[in-house]
Design a binder for these strands. Structure first.
Ligand SMILES: [Mn+2]
Ligand SMILES: [Mn+2]
Ligand SMILES: [Zn+2]
Ligand SMILES: [Zn+2]
Lengths: 136, 136
DNA sequence: GACTGCTTTAGACTAACTCTAAATTTATCC
DNA sequence: GGATAAATTTAGAGTTAGTCTAAAGCAGTC
């Protein structure tokens, strides 16, 4: 069953528009970490009007601000990807397929405390690269 | 004392040109992880000729290929930074100054083994964000 | 129905590169 | 040293992933 985007947006104080609804609905129901371009392609023809790229970017930035999604960068020098998994988690990039998998935060030892007192760590990112077996 | 860029380049089979020499010399003697723009600004007037941005980018890519430097991305969506520290290491970004510090690899617990058998980890990156005290 | 304040749109603009084609430099051979 | 060939550099055009702008569309309020 689909996660209800309308309730999610309303609960975060975001005004509903058809554009916002389809974009949020798409993101809330995929785990494929799409780019802005991929979001545009996926939702454009679910709308009766011509969708603008500016609206896609504006909406994605809005959803990030509202805490509905996260912006993630997994490829050095690559473009932003969008992720409705807002739990703190890590990423694994399958370097042969390009697919991105979520790695639960608890599955990896915590690193905050590994730096000495000189560094006050507020946040950190871990991205793994390699091959994932059983790629179904 | 300065690290000798000419020997380093020759030993890697890179042809010497004045442009390559000043760029490599600059990078081998700083730990500030400069952007291409900053490299350009730092070396441009050490040369008797007009330096082209294309040469800076070409040379940086060359030095990466030759293993003399590393390209690192520490800010989400930000541009490439160049790093003559080619040891495997982590980065700490001071979010108030933007300065980037090297964190020795051994100072942080190894993460290769933390993922289950489904994932064959070939590489991973860890970037810390926060404040560094004693910022001299 | 007018006023107000979002929201959306097309397209101009930007930053960080990459590519191209011509000019310059460097290396090789005599 | 001079001819030739190959590599390098250069200015500027092109590209990609965005952001910004200004006008048009819509929604909620009086
Ligand atoms: Mn952004
Ligand atoms: Mn590159
Ligand atoms: Zn994710
Ligand atoms: Zn470094």
């Amino acid at each position: 069953m689909l996660i209800a985007a309308d309730e999610m947006l309303i609960s975060r104080g975001v005004r509903l528009t058809p554009q916002r609804l389809v974009i949020a609905e798409y993101l809330l129901n995929t785990d494929c970490h799409p780019t802005a371009e991929q979001v545009f392609d996926a939702v454009a023809n679910a709308l009766p009007v011509q969708l603008s790229k500016a609206t896609v970017y504006n909406t994605l930035n809005m959803l990030v601000e509202a805490g509905v999604i996260q912006e993630v960068y997994t490829e050095p020098g690559g473009c932003a990807r969008y992720d409705a998994n807002t739990m703190r988690h890590h990423h694994f990039v399958d370097t042969s397929t390009g697919r991105i998998y979520d790695i639960p935060f608890e599955q990896v030892p915590t690193l905050e405390k590994s730096l000495d007192g000189k560094y006050k760590v507020k946040n950190y990112t871990v991205t793994f690269y390699g091959d994932r077996a059983e790629d179904s």
